[in-house]
Design a protein around this nucleic acid. Structure first.
Length: 519
RNA sequence: GGGCCGCUAGCUCAGUUGGCAGAGCAGCAGACUCUUAAUCUGCGGGUCGCAGGUUCGAUGCCUGCGCGGCUCACCA
């Protein structure tokens, strides 16, 4: 039906797809706001002008037709653009019988450009009285239901364009996302940070504990990895003298997918020479609260029914204190790995441990106790400071206590949002830490940090004392947009392909046969 | 990967203790020159996710598979 209409239009020389441009004078929401200002200005001596006399002449709006209220010789349509909706009014007297019929033959979902004047209807709706309506694109597929909208999560994620058309709160979330990203850049640029782009394709995937995606360069005949972190490259920039650098972009981790994890996600890592993890805490508070203000207008936000306050200063406590505060044991009295293992058994912590108990150090067990007792209780923004050295291979030790490092993670609503340290800049110690990671790998930890020899070489050239931090952008966006799932803040989340049609089966047979040649 | 739930018209959802498949919106035809979930009259619309099985008969029961959601594990 719609295809027939299109074919007819094309046969008549009215092909909408041949039109190349349309100049908008206004967007919907701004036009309505302008109109109300015009009305206020028209009030003379406290007397409002007669109904219907205020107009804004020569307006041009464009967008998608979302609904028809079809009257006999006068009709109303709702037009939706980027910012919202505005009502259109058409009547047969202004358009002429032929043109009026053509407009009535348009379909819901069609994209039109409209010129006319803005006015307020008798029922009080600011509208555009159309003098000309031009079809700019034909919609061949019917839109979802106008009242209930599009709810099916699978269609919403696979066909996000429909979700954006039908669900204004989804559009709003992604507009906020871009404001947050801009606010972060603005904040760092104002502090003389340099934005750089480090490799996405890397010969070594290191800088974090995660399994990488593997790919291959044909030109180099080389196995490559998609980056799991930008850390080691950004530190090379610090060695080179850039002093303050950041890279905001996608990281890729070949792990499970759930409400908080997408295989590709956006992370900012930033490094600042001549400061330490205390400097990073201040930067984190300032940066996140700045983003909150830019996205939501304030530092208090509602997240799933809980009010979160992002204004500085955030609560600070050490990992040991966090465990003790939330009902766990006091690790200050635990001196050896052996004592810690005994404690872990008594507390039933073995579930939380990632390795066999006999391979665990005091640090592993403290971390497990933190996850068990404290993590879920950290609702308001909190910095948990001083992580065990064993689980922090890129971090500088605390002065006077080689078992602990100057590292913190920020928690909100029981979830980690950032990870920061005073960066380890001693090349000899760094090499030892990598060698320890290699031993962990041999014990079966396939997420142990990979050795990057060139990175160690860069430290040998000399890196100043430096504070560094990584912040999960998607998670920040989740908190600032009240999103329950990470998929609600990623436009096109990773999905399995939809079930192939029967015609595609031969192709998939072919690709199956090709599989053994890969890798 | 495990567990639970879902998949019915373009969309939102009913439904069948196993017996011709339903509504609303959307669509089509008509009425209406201020409607806004417009209203009124009439009409069309289905591989009940896919494949097997049981049965006289399966959308419904059984098995397998696919996709999605939630959840546990892993991770940020």
């Amino acid at each position: 039906m719609r295809r027939e209409k299109l074919a007819k239009l094309q046969a008549e020389g009215r092909d909408p797809f041949a039109i190349v441009k349309f100049d908008q004078s206004h967007h919907s929401v701004a036009l309505k706001a302008d109109f109300e200002l015009r009305e206020k200005a028209a009030v003379v001596d406290g007397v409002a002008p007669a109904s219907g006399t205020v107009r804004i002449e020569d307006v041009a709006v464009a967008g998608r037709i979302m609904s028809f209220r079809d009257g006999g010789k006068a009709s109303f349509l709702d037009l939706q653009d980027r910012d919202g909706r505005i009502q259109l009014y058409i009547n047969i007297d202004d358009l002429g019988a032929d043109e009026y019929a053509r407009v009535k033959a348009l379909d819901r979902g069609d994209i039109v450009g409209v010129s006319g004047f803005a006015f307020r209807t008798r029922r009080g709706e600011v509208s555009v009285h159309a003098k000309q309506v031009t079809l700019l694109a034909k919609s061949l597929e019917p839109l979802p239901e106008k009242y209930h909208g599009l709810k099916d999560t699978e269609i919403r994620y696979r066909r996000r364009y429909l979700d954006l058309v039908m669900n204004p709160e989804v559009m709003d979330t992604f507009k906020k996302r871009t404001r947050i990203v801009s606010a972060i850049r603005e904040y760092l640029d104002g502090r003389e940070y340099i934005e750089v782009e480090t490799p996405v394709l890397a010969t070594i995937a290191s800088g974090a504990a995660a399994r990488p995606f593997v790919t291959k360069s044909n030109a180099l005949d080389l196995q490559l990895y998609l980056r799991i972190a930008t850390e080691l490259y950004l530190k090379r920039c610090i060695v080179g003298g850039m002093e303050r650098v950041y890279d905001m972009g996608k990281n890729f981790r070949n792990e499970g997918i759930d409400i908080r994890h997408n295989p590709e996600f956006t992370m900012i890592e930033l490094y600042q020479a001549y400061t330490d993890y205390n400097g990073m805490m201040e930067l984190c508070e300032g940066l996140v609260s700045h983003a909150a203000i830019k996205a939501t207008g304030g530092t208090k936000v509602d997240y799933q029914g809980t009010e979160l306050e992002f204004a500085a200063p955030w609560r600070r406590l050490t990992m040991i204190d966090a465990v003790r505060t939330y009902g766990g044991p006091d690790f200050t009295s635990v001196k050896t790995d052996e004592e810690a293992r005994k404690l872990a058994t008594e507390l039933g912590l073995t579930e939380e441990l990632k390795k066999m108990l006999q391979d665990c150090t005091k640090g592993d067990i403290l971390n497990a106790a933190f996850e068990k007792y404290a993590e879920k209780n950290l609702i308001q923004p909190t910095f948990v400071m001083d992580y065990p050295t064993d689980i922090s291979p890129l971090t500088k030790q605390k002065p006077g206590d080689p078992t602990m490092t100057e590292r913190f993670e920020g928690f909100v609503y029981g979830r980690e949002i950032c990870n920061a340290y005073s960066e380890l800049n001693d090349p000899i110690v760094q090499l030892e830490r990598f060698q320890q990671q290699e031993r962990e790998k041999a014990l079966g930890d396939d997420e142990a940090y990979a050795l990057d020899e060139d990175f160690v070489s860069s430290l040998e050239v000399g890196m100043p004392p430096t504070g560094g931090m990584g912040i999960g952008i998607d998670r920040i966006v989740m908190f600032l947009t009240n999103a329950y799932s990470i998929r609600d803040v990623i436009l096109f989340p990773t999905m399995k392909p939809d079930a192939p049609k029967a015609s595609g089966s031969r192709e998939s047979e072919d690709s199956k046969r090709a599989q053994p040649d890969l890798g």
